[in-house]
Design a protein around this nucleic acid. Structure first.
Lengths: 322, 322
DNA sequence: GAAACCCATAGATAATAATCTATATAACAT
DNA sequence: ATGTTATATAGATTATTATCTATGGGTTTC
């Protein structure tokens, strides 16, 4: 038996003939002519190499082989129905995988969105990669994920970005620090003190460095640590003071005081970034739509800058579909 | 998703691409060119309406949907393999149904062949119809069965017949009957006695009647009964004597004596009859081949007239195949 | 940065399939 | 017997598919 030439159309016609017990009736129902159906049947029988029907008083009765083929077709059709169902869920974003890569600092924010999303869409698998800026950019270059979260997104040649949250940098000092008595500070207050910094290349550091530079300030004493957590704990322990993203500081932490920096000038934001030269999982698009409509439910309203509508609508057009 | 245009060939190509992770490799293996495979994939993706692959370092990785389609294809292929297996068994006569219609008298003979056949081929379903000659001929006319067993086959315009066994008619008398003392009898011995007969139209009766007629004999006293069993028991009970097929009398029956009829003249035979204008189940052909080679194992050698070889070889050529 | 390899696409062609109309043929109903 | 209905087949046309060669644009490797 040679399956290669068989098309589903052929099987469909065959199944109708079995059900109606008649070539002519099948032809009428499928809006074909009788010879067409006859010929299709013939082709099928040739492919199978066996008689599939015999005549009995005006009716076509399937032979053993015909009946078995019919059962086979039914099952095959069911398989494809299942697949179609699955497809449908994937397309609706109800199922599938959404891979997000984000820089360290974002891990304080994204879970607040991802948690509720996961609860609402339990069949969507979320896969999160967290790294420093350099690592995440490398993933972005290789297009390893569906979604990226950056402040300071990289070159957007093949990508779209959508801002969704302010990333305010604040001064963090121990609660018993001299500066803790002030309501706000200026950059020059900071520059002369011992300060704990993230590594070069991190968005926080980049922003801080350029703020200092624009004012001609130079740090007197600094210490580099690769993690926001380590810095926060360090500040608590009196190792120094730090400039961090506001989102990194848990509001319950009474050992720290958070101060806005008057003259910081630069404001940074968090962005969702999506490559346009690559297929994006429907689940990821679905997550972005979810984010767009639910930002204010799950994140602090003060910082929200919801510009995801533009991103989402752009995605519906621009993204590659092969 | 529209399945109609999909052919199995397309799915086959798709599966190879999933397995090799490469269009080019698939092309090489299937002896196609790379663009051909590329195009097939494209068509499939269009039919499905979803991306099935994405690129990752020179390789094609199936998307969620692609993977699911792959699984679907696997299962479908398996379905068809099962079907092919089934087909194979049907064609080999190892599976399927074999419908045999036979006249009453034949039921004393056929089971001796059908029993061993069923044991050897347990997946073949045997369906037996038994009736008087008239009924079986009606079935034959309507081509309701694969195989018919007659002595005196009907018109063979659209049929083939193969003789396999003598059907000797004998005289049956109670063991205490006057004739029981003789070693054989003549027709004239019989005609003057009370005699139990099968109905007109039965082969036994037809044969007996014509034997009498050719000698100008007339029965003095007769009684018609529709079953061999009834006649046999009647003879036992002293209702009269009877002419029956030798095969009908169980050899263990000590209440009866069986006598050959010297001058009977006509010899009748059992025939397998097969219509040639109709598809015949492979199982039926298989049964006939079995009969041809095993007749002498299961039937009394004395009466065997095995002419089935001719029937079988004729069947392999003449029978309709659509 | 050149070579090697991958995939996508365009353009062309030959093969196949789908479909029709017309007609023959067989079975059935009356 | 005759008209009706059903299937099969022939012949023709159109649409689709399968397939090729040639080419262009990416990546990876060296």
């Amino acid at each position: 038996m040679d399956l290669r030439q068989l098309s589903f159309r052929l099987l469909e016609v065959f199944m109708h003939v079995v059900q109606f017990g008649s070539v002519s009736e099948t032809a009428r129902r499928l809006h074909l002519t009788q010879p067409t159906v006859s010929l299709q049947l013939k082709r099928l029988q040739e492919a199978v190499g066996e008689a599939l029907f015999f005549h009995q008083q005006q009716r076509l009765i399937p032979t053993e082989a015909g009946l078995e083929l019919f059962r086979t077709c039914q099952q095959v059709l069911e398989q494809f129905n299942d697949f179609e169902q699955y497809l449908h869920e994937i397309k609706g974003g109800e199922r599938g995988m959404c891979r997000i890569a984000m820089v360290n600092t974002a891990q304080y924010i994204l879970p607040k969105l991802m948690g509720p999303f996961s609860v609402a869409h339990p069949h969507v698998e979320m896969k999160v990669e967290i790294g420093n800026r350099e690592q995440v950019i490398a993933r972005f270059e290789r297009a390893e994920d569906d979604l990226y979260v950056f402040s300071h997104p990289p070159s957007l040649e093949h990508a779209l970005a959508g801002r969704f949250l302010q990333n305010p940098l604040v001064l963090v000092v121990p609660c018993d620090h001299v500066l803790a008595k002030q309501n706000s500070v200026s950059l020059s207050d900071i520059a002369e003190r011992r300060i704990l910094l993230r590594e070069r290349g991190s968005a926080t550091r980049m922003l801080f460095d350029s703020a200092l530079q624009s004012r001609g300030l130079v740090l007197s004493d600094s210490m580099q640590m690769a993690s926001n957590e380590a810095i926060r704990v360090g500040v608590s322990a009196g190792m120094g003071i730090a400039v961090l993203s506001r989102h990194v500081i848990p509001s319950e932490d009474r050992t720290l005081k958070v101060l806005p920096i008057d003259d910081f000038g630069l404001v940074s934001h968090w962005y969702f970034v999506v490559r346009t030269d690559r297929h994006i999982a429907h689940a990821a698009k679905h997550f972005l739509r979810f984010a767009e409509t639910n930002l204010d439910k799950y994140l602090e309203k003060t910082w929200i800058r919801n510009e995801l509508a533009a991103l989402n609508s752009a995605l519906n057009n621009k993204v590659k579909h092969n």
